[in-house]
Amino acid sequence: MQTKSPTIQLRGVKKLYKIGTEEVAALNGIDIDITEGEFAALMGPSGSGKSTLMNILGCLDRPTVGSYKLDGEEVAHLSDDALARTRNKKIGFVFQNFNLLSKIDALDNVALPLLYAGVGLKERREKAYHFLEAVGLGDRAAHQPNELSGGQRQRVAIARALVNDPHIIMADEPTGNLDTKSTKEIMEIFQGLHEKGRTIILVTHEPEIAQCASRQILVRDGVISKDAGRGVVMDVV
């Protein structure tokens, strides 16, 4: 058994909100290590702090206290722009409601992260097309999001998450708005990505979906209440 240095390392992470004079802790001391290539499911009832943890892991938010090392680099106290660049380079997002821009076509949606990475137009288009093809939507490149089905939209979003070759895919309830058939397709894509060695963090409240992951992390009242691999697979790839 070989242990790799973790891609994600959280130590003593707290997120505190002030409501009136009272301080409420959305996260109250979280320690997590996620190794490269892991497929982790983040679970928990609403109000558990699951979304806050997801935002911090996705570099959309900073912890109030504690340390977050991403690829060994401390990112807990970066500036807004530095966080934006980190997201652009290292994290690909897949959202429940797809979050595609409705006024531009699928290809330009996929190419968007490359725009902010400073890639030239021609290369942007080529790469975006390549990733659209990879999710089986090469023939829909010129379609606007509203001309695509829910499953197709989510596949466009996955292509967008992959286009800048990030270390980590953050998927927030990616199948929450999809029918059973599309859900199966999307989960197969995630399985495929996991087999290719991509690190995936999947936020869900559906146990069947979480079963696809190799590790389940349960958050409750701002702390991790359970952290278990499926069977024996834990910290091992």
Partner: peptide, 16 residues
């Protein structure tokens, strides 16, 4: 607002 949120999540900086 939502479009701006998406762009920021994908890595758009303040100046972008």
């Amino acid at each position: 607002t939502r479009e701006i949120g998406i762009r920021k999540a994908l890595g758009a900086t303040f100046s972008n």
